[in-house]
Design a binder for these strands. Sequence first.
DNA 1: ATAGGGTTAG
Length: 512
Amino acid sequence: MIGGYLRNERYPEALEMYEAMRSHSLRTDSCTCTFELKACTSLSDFETGMEIIDEARRLFDEMPPKDVVCWNSMIGGYVGACDFDKAFDLFFKMWGCGIRPSPITMASLIQACGGIGNLELGKCIHGCVNGLGMGCDILFNTSLVDMYGYVQNGLYFELFDLFFRLVSSGGGFDSVTMVSLLQGCAQIACLFTGKVLHGCVLRRGLESNLIVLTAIVDLYVKCGSLKLATSVFSRMQERNVISWTAMLVGLAQNGHAEDALRLFRQMQEEGVALNSVTLVSLIHACAQLGSLKKGKSVQAHLIRCGFVFNAVNITSLVDMYAKCGKVESAKRVFDNGSTSKDIVLWNSMITGYGIHGYGRQAVGLYDRMIKEGLKPNQTTFISLLSACSHSGRLEEAKALIKQMPFEPGNAVLEALLSGCRTHKNINMGICTADRLLSLDVMNPGIYIVLSNIYAEGRRWNEVDYVRGLMRKRGLRKTPGYSLIEVGNQVHAFFAGDNSHPFWSLLSCGDYW
DNA sequence: ATAGGGTTAG
């Protein structure tokens, strides 16, 4: 019964049942306790989880004849609670008792290796498993795939190599293995490997699995191949919020925000309810389009539906209002959620102040943030610096960089550099550009700003020199543009491009 | 009876 509740993710009921069982003085075994542990960890009730695992261990020690399932439950319990040392201790004890481990035992250990990030140990265990003759076990191999996925840091090659060796030696995989692989492939955005994996899905007959297909859509999106993503998505027999959202994000993030909004309407017509992730990507699409109207209408729609806003949603709204030029509205939205200790939310408001040059307010919010015990990160400083450099507080900016608890990254220095340009501080500008070029020699933006700084100081020889460097290194300037909403349309104005029909209106003064 | 999965802001 308890197991049934767990399978249906009804954790509170499972816990209640467990309590009832104990109050009737029924004997609970280590498996029941592990069930309970699972319920606790799923409920993020960490303390109860720890109590229960200790209790599980006590019962486990009292049980005289223990089969492999009991050992696995207990080891798995420890791994689930991130108590990896105890998991390994118990494994050695089990070995000492002469119990032959099963693939599940080994899978739990591999999971533990991923958890502590010890790949070498993982490889050791992989070797043992081959020795035990379980090298082709689907269950075990899935955990391996997971471990290589977990450890990340450029181990994708090993991961795919492992997988393809597995397939060619006749070893199996299932939908869960495949989803892990697709995810790993999406992270490195390797279209070629993606297509091969897609082929494996078809050959394996997994092409009607909703989760696998959603992962494929996301993979093609991350590889920038909207054509393939769309073709998979449009052929899906079954779709849910997550698959719709994956496609929507794909459109929005590849510069097709209008299409994303169109897809959203289609989703509503088909009666699929949106969730908070859908919302964030929608608002993001509106912000990209610079369309305040669409953003506001999405917000209004949600308020009507009684949608509960969380820190992430509020962040996206703050971001959208700020990008559309409405700092006051951004602040109002922010105030509604400012009891949250979410650093990203606070950063978004500081960024909002920054892009509009409200240096004083940005610094004020930063002070308040420190007072409330929040820890600033790189993004915080980037936003602060851009706020300071827009409003002429260069020395303050420089002091901020000095007191940063970490080395300034490219973005921090870029913000300072653009401030130097705005305020014509040639010497600080040259120093900053030098430092930046030593970090990122192929960034055209740095050369552009540096040559502008020289030009403003009328140092033409240096201007020529910098431009020559750019040419020699094959770097080109990327055009800047801004978005303006007029009526129901958003127009893009590129720097140095006066061809847009609205320029004539601008110069006639009809519109503004 | 014991493991594992897909989408989001800066």
